[in-house]
Design a protein around this nucleic acid. Sequence first.
DNA 1: TTTCTAAATGTTATCGGTAACATTTTCCCT
DNA 2: AGGGAAAATGTTACCGATAACATTTAGAAA
Lengths: 347, 347
Amino acid sequence: MSKVTIYDIAREAGVSTATVTRVVRRDPHVKEATRLKVQQVIDAHAYTPSLSAQNLEGGRTRTLAVVLPVISNLYFNRILDAAYWEAEKNGCSVRLFQTMENQAISPELVSELIRCRMDGVLFAGSIWSADRDDLNNALEKLGRYMPVATICPPDVSLECICIQSDLVNCSRLPVRHLHTLGHRRIAFLGGSMHSKDTSRRGVGFLEQLRLMDLPDDPAYHVDAGYDMESGERAILRMLSGLDSSRRPTAIVTFNDLVALGVMKQLKKMGFSLPQDMAIIGCDNQFFCAYTDPALTSVDLHPEEMAQSAVRELLLARESTSRSFAMIREATLVVRESCGAHLGFRKL
Amino acid sequence: MSKVTIYDIAREAGVSTATVTRVVRRDPHVKEATRLKVQQVIDAHAYTPSLSAQNLEGGRTRTLAVVLPVISNLYFNRILDAAYWEAEKNGCSVRLFQTMENQAISPELVSELIRCRMDGVLFAGSIWSADRDDLNNALEKLGRYMPVATICPPDVSLECICIQSDLVNCSRLPVRHLHTLGHRRIAFLGGSMHSKDTSRRGVGFLEQLRLMDLPDDPAYHVDAGYDMESGERAILRMLSGLDSSRRPTAIVTFNDLVALGVMKQLKKMGFSLPQDMAIIGCDNQFFCAYTDPALTSVDLHPEEMAQSAVRELLLARESTSRSFAMIREATLVVRESCGAHLGFRKL
DNA sequence: TTTCTAAATGTTATCGGTAACATTTTCCCT
DNA sequence: AGGGAAAATGTTACCGATAACATTTAGAAA
């Protein structure tokens, strides 16, 4: 692999490196003849100035880090994609870090982020399970080197740019919708009580039940996980433990994947959907319109949150402001899985 | 944002930068007392040597570029994910480039890749629609600076590491499966004839039909697109143009997304699946097991292709070998959408 | 105590660019 | 032709780290 440098180009073109830089950067103070000669050498070698060298000399990388558990999870996939394009729009690139599920923010990760001298870091999910002190400590350290943003539940309130997901409506909207349709026994499936962010979602759900005077039977809250298999297992476990009078008539799931599993298992057990059981997912993934019945779901608008986060990070490079918070309201996308389109109403 | 450098640490610890480097790199030739003193200063500042500086001095970036159309497409998502972890396993990171659909490999992209001085580039999809000469030209340029790998159809044969998808079986397996189940009128939906890679898939399908003495009615090959909406439109268009005697009894789709759309539209039209129409998708995406009926699909094993590509790229850094080719055989994952589980057989 | 070797630490050129500043060239005007 | 300003080009310090090489220090043997 040839390593062509600016010195090679300068020598071959018979000029100084300064002139090469001028040609590369389209500086107008170059005689046309010179520019042509230099450009020719540049083209012949397919030369472009090295980013590492530019970064070192310029003192910035024009790169943002995006830290998330896994990109194969569609929610995070959408965050990464949105962050990528928003950064791109501003002449920046993103660097991906996957922490795997349940991983807290490790000292090694902090080191690595500092090493990269990013222009900013965006944390999405996966760090809330960390011990609060460790977390603040890590953020403080990072904050000395670069602006930090998080896409987080609203009550976390860290010393950084905090783009908050709308946990309140995320619970309230499905419960209200189901209540309007006449449901009273509503269960929540998925997530994990061991993780703080998830339990928060479960807690919000229970609160909402109480607020609306609905039964908050402990059996209606099953700690399950985040994927389809979890959904299958969870609904099976829940239903097998309840006689028909205590059985919920509607299920709210942690996300659409869990909902997918629940729907499959229910069908296998002979339930007709949505008649025998209403279901609401979360994340409004692309496949929701294509399940049978089409899945009603809550959209947290991860793309917009990511965009805001990136925008604020880029602004923070200039300013001195420390923390910032905003919230993107969640919305409910009604499809068929609760029977609303049939004018279906539970009695 | 503070910019702590090795000079700051050296000054504060009262040693030279060489000693700081030694401490950071765990060089044993440092007195315990010194190491402690230096480490303390390092910790106090959360200092880590700058990657840009290290890259410049070391002459390598330990980073691979992954170029693909969009990560929101699950196929490419899986490629990126697999490449990420395989690189990680070898102490490298990846840098993502999204080219958007149908975009050829532009001169700007080539420049940008050279600028980044990556240790290698992996192209997945999206470059096959480019003019062959432009493409080879671009690959030649890139090849001067870094090893290049592609995940490509088998007959492309470029001067680079070529991980080939199994286009033959990708057509053959579904057609055979359907033939075994008694189907004779089989249609292909999706992709775009304007794009070279896709037409190749369609052509392979037609070839297979002929090989098996099945009717290759031109109406059985609809140029549609890559997503669910495309599938809905395509099946509607196809069926509305055919009377029942010419109607296909089975559909092979370009990918699972198109299949999702086809299934939805068919159900809407009152078809029972798989009784009235068999369907086979491609990519074996996570949701295939959760559609109703569960979707039979071809798996091209993108993860393994990405892994091989990354491994070969990393090997190529040392060696001088130019090109390399291997193929990962496609496999058919039989589920319910062709009725095989019911012992269902078309007459 | 002197001498010699090994251990510990320091000095400095280098990686590939950039830009401020210095110098040379060009060319217009008198 | 000579003077002077503008245009073109060159020189060089610096960005932050590393490693080869140089130097100092410590400790053991004589």
